[in-house]
Design a protein around this nucleic acid. Sequence first.
DNA 1: GAAATATTGTTTCTTTGTGAAACAATAGTA
DNA 2: TACTATTGTTTCACAAAGAAACAATATTTC
Lengths: 236, 236
Amino acid sequence: MVFQADDYIPNLSYDSVIFGFSGEKLKILILEYHNTGTFALPGGFIRKDEDLDSAVKRGLSERTGIDQIYLEQFHTFGALHRSNPEVMRRIFEGQGIVMKDHWIYDRFISVGYYALINYDTVSPKPDALSDSIGWYNFDSLPELMQDHNQIVEKALEHLRNHLDQKLLSFNLLPEFFTMKDLQQVYESILGENQNRANFQRKMLGLEILERHEKLYSGGSHKAPFLYSFRKRKSDS
Amino acid sequence: MVFQADDYIPNLSYDSVIFGFSGEKLKILILEYHNTGTFALPGGFIRKDEDLDSAVKRGLSERTGIDQIYLEQFHTFGALHRSNPEVMRRIFEGQGIVMKDHWIYDRFISVGYYALINYDTVSPKPDALSDSIGWYNFDSLPELMQDHNQIVEKALEHLRNHLDQKLLSFNLLPEFFTMKDLQQVYESILGENQNRANFQRKMLGLEILERHEKLYSGGSHKAPFLYSFRKRKSDS
DNA sequence: GAAATATTGTTTCTTTGTGAAACAATAGTA
DNA sequence: TACTATTGTTTCACAAAGAAACAATATTTC
């Protein structure tokens, strides 16, 4: 599982910010390299014979088991000193792998992607080098290696700016959800409370929701409708 | 001037969409390789010892002579077959350079940037490989090599989406301009007419314009105010 | 089984913002 | 001096957004 130099494009990687929503909080997937105490975003390399997008999809599907993932590229990080060969070296040595020279120790420019996935239906798997992968609350992340904290910041910024246009939130929810669920997704991403009545009006006005029978819920109050989002032509 | 393999990151390039505004129309800079009839965006490669952003700035300043350029990265294009080695080979051979193998014939992933510059104060210079560089009306571009037309499309899309937030338009205007000038920039970028009264109200409301004395103009009508945009702390 | 409670779905009212038109001002022209 | 073209501003109508109030209902409590 040591990466063969000839198979991959050198000096170029991708890093992914994988968002999930637990029902209350926005979370992202973080890898941990136990022996080094290093936290990192899931990332990977691009084969010489594959599309950039395909490389990212491949990596995410390996880690999450999901094939149909909402993926968006948001920025490419190219500062000269963003990558630190010493950190990579420690990670490999923490795994018992000692290599004097390797293309992986070079300087890397990295393309940032974010993904939105349904938290409930995923059981993430660590990759070959990492010992664990897990969900972390977005508002209390550990310190990540290299510039990964900045990458996360930029991902959220992009997500916020495009939340309305792209109805991204749906990718974070299960098939059926209540209006309150949807509102909580918006609130956790935007970081501010939304007015309940206006939020409902706005969402229904978009004409993308399908209303179903009422939820037979356990709450001691009026049961909310369940919604799903309409299948569109563009969906495959 | 043949690029040395050891100096540059392989398989990675940048392409730049350089916007200018002639006073009426939105234009972009296009290179032409005469002997091949090929049109292309100005682009370049990244040295192993420089920031990605610096590489792009270096390239633009070589071509435009301007150092302080508004630059924004908008997308990285990574489709496997986006670059075509045959086209590159023809360009080199058109220059009388015949090389059997060269890293420049490899597959390239390219980072797209756009720049906004003041049309009047720039006299663009072609690079080593191209015979000419010139302004083309944005709405009547020639067919460009590889995926460069798509790159331009995506640049405009990004520019439109961020026009309000970032007040980008100012980078396209001379130091002093009228409200009508500013409105024409907006209209040419957005591709639709703006209401005159509301546009003025909106722009003044942003509190970023400084109003100066009236222009002593030649028009047979009330002379318009001249404006400049306020210097901000963040400017260096 | 009736009242109480919590939350949902909707409506109403107010405020704010936007689009279009009208009005007033003025530099040059006839 | 009147006329014309365009600018700067105001007004009006309408739509959107924010806040509060009202009505409906599933469960709990008495």
